[in-house]
Write a protein that binds this DNA or RNA. Sequence first.
DNA 1: TAAGTTAGCGTACAGTTGTAAGCTGAGATT
DNA 2: AATCTCAGCTTACAACTGTACGCTAACTTA
Lengths: 202, 202
Amino acid sequence: MSRQEQKLKTRQNIINGAFSLLDENRSLSAISLREVSRAAGIAPTSFYRHFKDMDELGLTLVDEAGLALRQLMRQARRRIASGGSVIGTSVDTFMEFIAGNTNVFRLLLREHTGTSAAYRMAVFREIQHFIEELTDYITEQLQVEYSIANIQADAMVRLVFSAGAEALEADAQLRTEIADRVKSQLRFIQLGAAATLLTAAS
Amino acid sequence: MSRQEQKLKTRQNIINGAFSLLDENRSLSAISLREVSRAAGIAPTSFYRHFKDMDELGLTLVDEAGLALRQLMRQARRRIASGGSVIGTSVDTFMEFIAGNTNVFRLLLREHTGTSAAYRMAVFREIQHFIEELTDYITEQLQVEYSIANIQADAMVRLVFSAGAEALEADAQLRTEIADRVKSQLRFIQLGAAATLLTAAS
DNA sequence: TAAGTTAGCGTACAGTTGTAAGCTGAGATT
DNA sequence: AATCTCAGCTTACAACTGTACGCTAACTTA
């Protein structure tokens, strides 16, 4: 194995090690450089060969999480295109994502309101991208005004994330209840936004 | 000063000291017993005369925050009763609360997705109370079905809290934009819920 | 092949943490 | 007045933290 390959592999070990430590009772600010190094199987001081400090690792993790989020949206679109209701399919896809990438979603959720301004902003940007993409989608599909579509998309994403947070700690049955509820809420918003459009047009 | 009075005063010093440490970059899990004791002006070991450990203090703080939240709702109702739009007045009152009790709201927000299951549940309960009271209010005012009013109230509270989180880091101008946006979103939901009722009745 | 680069290691240090043990002095009780 | 209670103190310790320093061994380049 070449030197560069080995370095990349170790770097990935650090990232994976960090994610494995981010369970339900540890945030980025609560995991130490030494713990991460231990999980990655290297000496504490070797950590510095890959990251300047823990903050740099944290931002890398947020980036990776954002990447997973964008892949999720692509998957939802594929499913909708091959014949599924927009709201139902989107919520179900999101809930599957949470179940399968628990620590990734938890990272976003936690650091969104966490103690590091840099992390908060990084997560905020990822969510804004998500909202913008949804806004575009709504504008295309329903030919509505951009500003209203944006307010609608914003509300939808916030509700789905909030429901996701609740689902994170729920069992299978409660999760379907949460999913059903958020679907109703998204329909309310869709109806309300449509009604607002009609009012404005008249 | 009697011994009991003195003890209560010290206890309050500990609570106030803890709140003062909970600024934008410290969560409950990130403040130490020694720091709190320092802020309260007592020796670290004297802390134990008042609380079993930091967890007990944390739950006390969440309780206090929940209390403030209920007072907020009462204030909003009073304002609405003396002639104000429901959504506009509620959101404005909430935003004023956040501006005036920043650290209190931040505590709720942060621990809602924090690293302690006990805190998460405690905050969850406070928010549920909030939602239930709003559900009752909607049921009374609009004579709608409880289950629908509950879904509506749930969405409204989640959106307002989410907007509050964003407002926490925004300047005055951005705050009014956030307030306007969330007001629109709440109207969408109200319209959508009403439309759903009509559909169900037909 | 010789020289240069560098990923990873071991040791070390000062700072922080929670909390155990036992003392003091002042308010409370009798 | 004598005794009891207890809020707060000082001291002490083991565990953990980030990171500075210098070494080694293996890969890379000339």
